[in-house]
C-alpha cells in the first residue's frame, strides 16, 4: 500500500524537474538594498572587470533583505550583501551569518566608513541621514511656517501634519530616533518624542513614504531621508528638504560576505571592487557621502550641507541597544490612537 503511494507522490513532482535544472554557469548572487540605479551601476562596473561572472541581483528594502538572509541560514542563497544598513548587518553578524573579510582597498576607505574590528565584517559604500520633507504649497495654504530644527516639531502648529515611519519596521526611523537620543540624551530624547508624538498623524512602515506623502500633499512634514525627497523634487513636487539645525542621525550602507557563500572567490572579488575608489565614484552620483572622503559630487537637488550636519554617533552602542530602543518605542507610541486632525 505504501509503495504505490510513494511512487505516485514522486511522480506528482516530476513535472517540476525540468524547471529546476538551470544551466550551471559561474554566477554570483548579490542581495542589495541600495538605490536600484546605483546597485545596477555598481554591478555593471563589476561585470565589466569580471566578464566571466554573471551577477544575479535581488533588490529589496533594508529589513526584508536581512530577514531573508537570516531565514536562509540553513543553506545560504546569497554570496554577498552589497549594501545594507550596518545596524541590520550587525543583526545578521550577531547570528554568525557573515564572513569576516578585509577587501583589497580596505585601508584606503575613510576610517569611519569601515568595520574597525580586528576581523572586519563590513566595508562602507555610502551613508544616508535623517531629513525632513516639507510641502511648501500645503503649508502656505494653512499658514504653517517651515521648521528649522527638530525641536520645532513639538510646536502645536504642526499638530496632525507630521508623518514618520515606525522604527519597528523601518531602518530610516531608527536612525532618526538614534539621532534624537544622541542630540537630546537618553532622557531628553524620549521627552522630545513624547511631545512630538502629539503632532504625529501617522507612523507608517516605509522609510521613504513620508517624503512621498509630503510630495503629494498627503502630509505637510515627512520625517524621512533626502533621496526620496530629491526624486520627488526632480519630478516636480513642491517640497523643500530641510536638514534640522541640531544635526542628523545617520547610518552607513555597507557590503558584507555571507558565510557559506557558494561562490566565495567572486564574492571576495565583489567586495574588493566595492571598496575601490572607482566604485565610490559611481556611488557618489547617487549619494554625496561615500567611502572616500575626498570625492565631492553633489547629485542634482541634493541638499549641500548634509555632510557637515552629521552627528557624531556611537554605532557600536546603537547596534547593541537596537532591541531596547524598539521595545521602549513600542511601549510609548505603539498603542497610539491617531488624533483627529
Amino acid at each position: 500500500m505504501l509503495k504505490p503511494i510513494l511512487a505516485a507522490t514522486i511522480a506528482a513532482f516530476i513535472p517540476f524537474v525540468p524547471l529546476v535544472a538551470e544551466a550551471q554557469q559561474r554566477t554570483l548572487t548579490v542581495y542589495s538594498s541600495l538605490d536600484e540605479d546605483q546597485a545596477k551601476a555598481l554591478i555593471k562596473g563589476f561585470e565589466a572587470k569580471h566578464p566571466q561572472v554573471k551577477v544575479n541581483a535581488i533588490l529589496g528594502s533594508t529589513a526584508p533583505i536581512i530577514a531573508r538572509v537570516i531565514a536562509e541560514a540553513a543553506s545560504p542563497q546569497a554570496d554577498i550583501i552589497m549594501g545594507n544598513a550596518v545596524s541590520a548587518l550587525m543583526a545578521a553578524d550577531a547570528r554568525s551569518l557573515l564572513l569576516p573579510y578585509k577587501p583589497a582597498h580596505f585601508d584606503k576607505v575613510a576610517p569611519v566608513m569601515r568595520d574597525n574590528r580586528a576581523e572586519p565584517v563590513w566595508v562602507g559604500i555610502d551613508a544616508w541621514a535623517s531629513s525632513l520633507c516639507f510641502n511648501t504649497v500645503e503649508a502656505a495654504k494653512k499658514n504653517i511656517p517651515a521648521p528649522k530644527s527638530w525641536a520645532d516639531l513639538t510646536n502645536p502648529v504642526y499638530k496632525g501634519h507630521i508623518t514618520m515611519p515606525s522604527p519597528l519596521s523601518s531602518g530610516t526611523a531608527l536612525l532618526a530616533v538614534n539621532g534624537w537620543l544622541t542630540i537630546f540624551g537618553e532622557k531628553g530624547g524620549w521627552e522630545f518624542m513624547d511631545k512630538m508624538h502629539e503632532n504625529v498623524s501617522k507612523y507608517g512602515h516605509s522609510g521613504s513614504a513620508p517624503c512621498r506623502q509630503a510630495g503629494s500633499g498627503e502630509t505637510i512634514i515627512g520625517i524621512s531621508y533626502a533621496t526620496p525627497g530629491v526624486k520627488a523634487i526632480n519630478e516636480g513636487a513642491p517640497i523643500q528638504i530641510i536638514l534640522p539645525s541640531e544635526g542628523l542621525g545617520w547610518e552607513i550602507e555597507a557590503a558584507a560576505i555571507v558565510k557559506g557563500a557558494r561562490n566565495l572567490a567572486d564574492a571576495k572579488a565583489m567586495a574588493d571592487w566595492i571598496s575601490s575608489r572607482e566604485a565610490a565614484e559611481i556611488s557618489a552620483k547617487y549619494l554625496p557621502i561615500t567611502a572616500y572622503d575626498d570625492i565631492q559630487v553633489l547629485p542634482k537637488n541634493y541638499p549641500a550641507d548634509e555632510k557637515s550636519k552629521l552627528l557624531k554617533m556611537d554605532f557600536a552602542k546603537l547596534a547593541s541597544s537596537r532591541e531596547a530602543v524598539m521595545a521602549e518605542w513600542q511601549k510609548r507610541y505603539g498603542v497610539k490612537v491617531p488624533p483627529k486632525n
Binding site: 537570516i70 519597528l168 498623524s201 512602515h205 524598539m326 490612537v337
Partner: peptide, 21 residues
C-alpha cells in the same frame, strides 16, 4: 491604516523589523 494597529501588521513588525521569527 494610519497608526491603527492590527495583528497582521504585528507579524511584519516582528519578523521584518526585529528579525524575531
Amino acid at each position: 491604516g494610519g497608526s491603527t494597529n492590527v495583528l497582521a501588521t504585528d507579524i511584519y513588525k516582528l519578523v521584518i523589523g526585529r528579525f524575531d521569527f
